[in-house]
Write a protein that binds this DNA or RNA. Structure first.
Lengths: 121, 121
DNA sequence: CGAATAGTTTTCCATAAGGCTAAGTATCAA
DNA sequence: TTGATACTTAGCCTTATGGAAAACTATTCG
């Protein structure tokens, strides 16, 4: 994927809003219609719809219309993008730790050598 | 925490930009100065500084100035906020799965009962 | 001291985000 | 067929974001 980074932008930004996170939380326990989802929020429907569209464009949810009702559902796979990024980060941290460790080991070895030479004198 | 949600907003939004993610990636392998961090980006310094301040306000990095150099370093603890949110979500999914499972089990039991009554007739 | 270095402050700009109201457009139900 | 339901579209407003240039401050080096 060449637009991996842009996708991440979208996913993280979608998650950067409490309304949208709440919607995702709700969808975690099963699909729901727009008005069901909107009910808990003191917000005009068109404003709420923007959040839904944002979530859909980020790929975190899917929506489908049947009759006059649009049903939204979670796209769980998309969440793994976040997990993926997190583990990349941890991998970098780990690599650093490993480098530091080998430095320490090298230094310890050096010190032992010094000591030995001192004794052999 | 009462501002847990706002903190999450900040963290996710900080992550929603490729420049900032790259900086975090770089800091993963150790602290660095502003100009070191800025070097890879074709961006005026003041623009870059905004990203640094954003990252600092989100709590994902710490910075300290010594002489004329400001050194930035990762605040790894902050990353666990994201992991925390992810596991909350997974917990919701799991709860749903459990409910569905018990429904299925209940239905199976019901069907067995029906069958038995049928036989006992 | 004087110049180069490393940030910092200020001001400006265009676009995106999040919210609103008002006015559509399709279903569905009586 | 009329009315209610369930969204949609369109337009408007304010604030936040990501970027830039110009000018300033504080260190450090020769």
């Amino acid at each position: 994927m060449e637009n991996y980074s842009e996708d991440l932008d979208g996913v993280f930004q979608a998650l950067a809003d409490p309304t949208r996170r709440a919607v995702l939380g709700r969808l975690g326990s099963g699909p729901a219609s727009i008005s069901d989802l909107a009910a808990p929020f003191a917000m005009a429907l068109p404003s709420f719809m923007k959040h839904i569209r944002f979530l859909e464009e980020s790929g975190l949810i899917r929506t489908a219309k049947e009759g006059r009702v649009r049903t939204c559902s979670l796209e769980r796979a998309r969440f793994s993008m976040v997990e993926g990024w997190l583990s990349e980060q941890r991998a970098v941290w780990q690599a650093r730790t490993d480098r530091l460790e080998s430095l320490v080991l090298a230094r310890e070895e050096f010190l032992r050598d010094q000591e030995k030479k001192e004794k052999d004198k």
